[in-house]
């Protein structure tokens, strides 16, 4: 039990360490030198190529994407954070260059509708289960004998055995 706690605490410690580190990394001016392709790709992955459906900017081979990656590099070198870069691209080229619509206005519907639908589904499930289990079931629900669980399965296998062994 203590093991779990220790691990949980350690996770927490790691994550808070990361918050500190992330803040340090994101501080402007940290990227004085040219960013590496991997750093550029990290951001480019969160943008989608508008001229070729369904591919993100990191993976797309077109000229547009190459230019965009270069621009991401410039912005990173200026010390912009990932979020700022995404906002720049959304403002410059439209919201549809983001892999996921921004969380505002009508776009919230992307997230809200499924959540409502799932909750409604759960609600219906609960309601039906409640209604069904409340029905009188006296006719064909004799009390289950205490060892029935193990037996039911074994019985099934034995039945099969009999039906096959003639």
């Amino acid at each position: 039990m203590f093991g779990v706690l220790r691990v949980a605490l350690r996770c927490l410690a790691f994550s808070s360490l990361w918050v500190v580190l992330a803040l340090a990394w994101d501080a402007p001016g940290m990227f004085a030198q040219t960013p590496s392709p991997d750093e550029i790709n990290r951001v480019a992955k969160m943008l989608s190529c508008p001229t070729c459906a369904g591919i993100n900017v990191a993976d797309c081979p077109t000229e547009t994407c190459a230019q965009w990656r270069a621009k991401i590099g410039e912005l990173l070198a200026e010390g912009k954070t990932d979020q700022e870069i995404l906002e720049y691209f959304a403002a410059r080229y439209g919201d549809h260059v983001l892999q996921v619509p921004p969380t505002r206005g009508f776009f919230l519907g992307v997230w809200i509708v499924p959540i409502i639908a799932i909750l409604a589904g759960l609600g219906t499930f609960g309601y039906l289960a409640h209604r069904w289990t409340k029905r009188p079931t006296a006719i064909e629900s004799p009390a289950v004998p205490s060892d029935a669980v193990e037996d039911e399965y074994v019985k099934r296998v034995e039945q099969e055995l009999q039906s096959w062994q003639k």
């Binding site: 989608s48 549809h96 996921v100």
Partner: peptide, 27 residues
């Protein structure tokens, strides 16, 4: 339903809100 909604959301968004959107793998 989530898959369906994510797939048709761009159509819905453009028609109802006049805003283009892409729903990508992260969603």
């Amino acid at each position: 339903f989530v898959t369906f909604w994510g797939t048709i959301f761009p159509v819905v968004s453009e028609l109802l809100a006049g805003q283009k959107a892409i729903v990508g793998p992260p969603f």
